[in-house]
């Protein structure tokens, strides 16, 4: 498995990277950790003439928690997400999800930006970011703009990002209440058969807000507004969970693959969503 030849660029800042993208148009691809792109290049299923490696762009590597907001640079690795004490404090669901991605080596290289940017339905961070109602910053030749994670994904590998833009930053409000990221996979290193992220808040005995999003159960991540709504105002007891699960499952559209047929995936999705809600509630 040998990739085709390409020109390699390693800009030291975002401006430099954007200028390369402008020059080379859709012949250019941005390289973050490379653990999605490089295997595709080796299998010659992705052809890239100009590879723009972002490893030297220091401005994309920070994690900050301030004023109730979490901001992640696109080049922050999964490993750094796991190791960050302030992130574990502010948004432990991120660590919980990141630990379920791939394996240790891949997590050292794999970045949160790469994971959310390319629109691979198997990636876990897009669903998580929809759960957290994150916003993605896209920088392009005409400046920067923000897109909500819930509006970013159009179809598998098709996103709101233009070819000459780079996804530079992810931000979200520090979630309150309970959380869970539940994932069923065949083995370490596999994509999800079904995965679900839940954050919910509790006041007294009742749920005051809830967000439910799912991974690899459609060609895009699925945030189920109805599922969240079904939980709010309830005690997240068995009946409420059942209603929420039904709502969430109504929003997914899984495809058959080696992990199993559609009926199986829909059923397992329901189980995983239910478990995620219950675990989040137990932590709320």
């Amino acid at each position: 498995m040998i990739p085709a030849a390409f020109e390699y660029h390693r800009p030291s800042d975002v401006a430099g990277a954007l200028s390369l993208l402008s020059t080379h148009g859709d012949d250019a691809r941005v390289l973050a950790g490379g653990h999605s792109l490089i295997p595709m290049m080796k299998l010659r299923m992705a052809s890239v003439e100009h590879l723009v490696d972002l490893q030297d762009v220091a401005e994309l590597k920070g994690i900050s928690v301030a004023d109730g907001h979490v901001t992640l640079g696109a080049m922050v690795t999964q490993h750094s997400l796991i190791e960050s004490a302030e992130l574990a404090e502010a948004a432990p669901i991120v660590r919980e999800a990141a630990l379920q991605i791939a394996d240790p080596q891949v997590r050292y290289m794999g970045t949160v930006g790469g994971n959310v940017a390319n629109g691979d339905p198997g990636n876990d961070m897009p669903g998580l970011m929809q759960c957290l109602d994150a916003r993605f910053t896209l920088q392009g030749p005409n400046g920067s703009r923000e897109v909500a994670a819930r509006a970013y994904y159009e179809a598998a590998y098709f996103t709101a990002r233009a070819d000459d833009e780079i996804l530079t930053q992810i931000s979200f409000a520090v979630p309150v209440g309970g959380y869970a990221y539940e994932k069923q996979k065949r083995k370490v290193g596999d994509y999800a058969t079904a995965a679900c992220g839940v954050v919910l808040a509790k006041e007294g005995a009742l749920c005051t807000s809830a967000s439910v999003a799912m991974t690899n159960l459609a060609d895009v991540p699925v945030w189920s507004e109805a599922a969240g709504a079904a939980l709010v105002g309830t005690d997240c007891g068995p009946e409420a969970v059942k209603t929420a699960v039904a709502a969430a499952v109504a929003d997914i559209d899984p495809a058959e693959d080696n992990r199993g047929p559609v009926a199986f995936k829909r059923h397992v999705a329901g189980i995983i969503i239910g478990r995620a809600i219950s675990r989040a509630w137990s932590r709320a």
Partner: peptide
């Protein structure tokens, strides 16, 4: 694998 065991139960 998971789906085939699930199918037994189903």
């Amino acid at each position: 694998d998971h789906w085939r065991i699930w199918k037994i139960a189903n």
